[in-house]
Simulated scan of single mutants.
Amino acid sequence: MPELIYQGPSGRLEGRLHPAPERGAPTAIILHPHPQFGGTMNNPIVYQLYYMFVERGFSVLRFNSRGVGRSQGYFDHGVGELADAAGSLDWLQAQNPDSRFTWIAGFSFGAWIGMQLLMRRPEVAGFMSVAPPANLHDFSFLAPCPSSGLIIHGDEDKVVPEPAVQALVDKLKTQKGITIDHQTVEGANHFFEGKLEDLDRRCSEYLDFRLANPGMR
């Protein structure tokens, strides 16, 4: 796939875009894990989520946040990375002005950034948060969570223990008007090593269900 360079809030950002074949197709943005621990847009889970949306006719963007790969800038502890995500979504939507709706998906640190972005963008129809780091970052901004979505993690995750994710899910499930689908992959660690097919199947089934029920929020 050809390299994509576009202007972000503090310099150029490197990404990969798969444009949808049909005008007015939905859009999706995929967010990578922590930059200081090797997270890039080429992470296997990011790559898998990217093509899951591609296969369903979305225009999809994955990108390297500031300081990663050929993206300019320096790691900014989440503040700048959220700005990069918001700018990237603006760029994607400008390329697809007739898009019907948008999804956000992120893995680990990217799930934290994605759910913050979700709070700022009422046009987002749904989200996927893979192994959200509920023990490492503050998720109290989800008050209330504006959209239904999937939270999925492994029961052998040592980076983000299961009780931390469960506490986040329990909090979100008390909110009216949205539905949180919470799934646990048995035997999966934080990186879903040996469990990527199971992760892909579950995410794909959830997305297919949501696409078949467009009125769900």
Rank of each mutant, 00 (worst) to 15 (best):
S129K: 02
P161F: 07
E123P: 11
L142T: 11
Q93N: 12
Q95C: 15
G149D: 01
N135Q: 11
E156R: 15
V169I: 14
N135H: 13
K171M: 12
G114E: 04
N96M: 08
I113W: 06
D90I: 07
I104W: 02
G114M: 02
I113Y: 08
P144E: 02
E81H: 02
D84H: 05
A125H: 11
S140Y: 06
G177P: 12
G149W: 02
L89E: 00
L168Y: 05
I104E: 00
S147Q: 13
V159G: 03
N96Y: 07
S88I: 00
A94D: 11
M115I: 06
L168F: 11
L118V: 03
L92V: 14
Q116D: 02
I180K: 07
W103S: 01
E123S: 09
I178K: 07
P163G: 04
N135S: 14
D90E: 10
L136W: 01
A164N: 13
Q116W: 00
H137V: 04
S140D: 14
D84N: 14
A111F: 00
W91T: 15
M115G: 04
T102V: 10
L82D: 13
S88R: 00
W91H: 14
P132C: 01
S140K: 11
G87E: 08
I180N: 10
P163T: 04
S147A: 15
L118H: 03
F139M: 02
C145W: 00
V160G: 11
L92C: 14
P122K: 06
K158L: 11
E81F: 01
D138Y: 00
L117A: 15
A131M: 05
D170S: 13
S99H: 13
A86G: 10
L92N: 05
N135F: 13
V130I: 14
A85Y: 10
L150K: 04
D98Q: 15
P132G: 00
A85L: 08
H137F: 15
L142H: 06
G106L: 01
M119F: 03
I180W: 08
G126W: 06
